[in-house]
Design a protein around this nucleic acid. Structure first.
Length: 203
DNA sequence: CCACGGATTGGCT
DNA sequence: GCCAATCCGTGGA
C-alpha cells in the first residue's frame, strides 16, 4: 500500500514529546493491531488531547488512580477505558513520565482487515454503504479493532498494537475545534481532524 | 458501603 | 432531535 521507506513503526521518542504536537502528528498515521495472523489497520483521522494538569475533562485531572495510572507513565502506552456501561475508548499516552497527558483516538479510516472489523462491529460482513459506520467514533474504533480492557497499558513500541509512521498532514488540511461530548473545560480547542475526511465523527 | 454519572451509541419520536 | 442502555471507577458517608 505504501512505499517501504516511510512505513515503519513509531518509536518511543515520537510519543514522549508534547501532548499537542503528538496529537496533531498522529493524524494520518496508521494504527495496527495484530490478532494472530489477522492484521487490522486504519488511518487515524480524528483525535482529541487531554491534559491532567490544567484540563478538568481529563481523567488524569484528579490525580493518579488505579484507572488512570498508565497516563502518568512516559509516552507510548495505550490507555483504554470503559464508559457508559457499554463502550471502550482508546488513548495514546504522551509526554514525559509523570505528566498525565493522552490523546483520544476518535475516528479511523479502515485500511486492512475490513471483514474482521465488520464482524467485530456487527457480527457479519456489511454492505459497502455501511463501511463508513465501522470506525467513525471512539467507541466504534475500539469495537471494530477488538480493543478492550485486556489492552490497557499495552506498549505501543511492541508487537501487538503499534502505529506506523506516515508523512505529516499539512496544516491547511487539519481542522482544529473544541472537543466533543464533555461537560468541563469545554472552551479548549484541542480536537484535531483531517479536513473533508468522511470518517470524522462529527462536524 | 453506596450513589452518581460518564471523552458514546443507536433506536425511536 | 431526544433519550435509554448498562458497567464500574470514583468520591463521599
Amino acid at each position: 500500500m505504501n512505499p517501504d521507506f516511510y512505513v515503519k513503526k513509531l518509536k518511543r521518542n515520537f510519543y514522549t514529546r508534547d501532548l499537542q504536537i503528538v496529537a496533531k502528528e498522529l493524524l494520518g498515521k496508521i494504527l495496527v493491531k495484530k490478532d494472530g495472523k489477522a492484521i487490522l489497520s486504519g488511518k487515524i483521522v480524528e483525535v482529541e488531547a487531554y491534559d491532567g494538569d490544567i484540563d478538568e475533562a481529563s481523567h488524569a485531572f484528579t490525580g493518579k488512580t488505579e484507572r488512570t495510572k498508565i497516563m502518568f507513565n512516559e509516552g507510548g502506552y495505550f490507555y483504554v477505558y470503559f464508559t457508559y456501561g457499554a463502550h471502550y475508548c482508546c488513548n495514546v499516552v504522551t509526554g514525559k513520565k509523570g505528566r498525565g497527558t493522552a490523546v483520544l483516538i476518535r475516528a479511523i479510516e479502515p485500511v486492512e482487515g475490513i471483514s474482521s472489523m465488520s464482524k467485530n462491529r456487527f457480527g457479519n460482513m456489511i454492505d459497502e454503504k455501511d463501511k463508513i459506520k465501522l470506525t467513525n467514533g471512539p467507541g466504534k474504533v475500539c469495537k471494530a479493532f477488538g480493543i478492550s480492557k485486556e489492552h490497557y497499558g499495552v506498549d505501543l513500541t511492541g508487537e501487538n498494537i503499534f502505529i506506523l509512521n506516515m508523512p505529516k498532514i499539512k496544516d491547511d488540511e487539519i481542522v482544529i475545534t473544541k472537543r466533543v461530548g464533555i461537560k468541563k473545560s469545554m472552551d479548549l480547542a484541542w480536537r484535531y481532524y483531517i479536513k473533508n475526511n468522511p470518517y470524522v465523527s462529527k462536524k
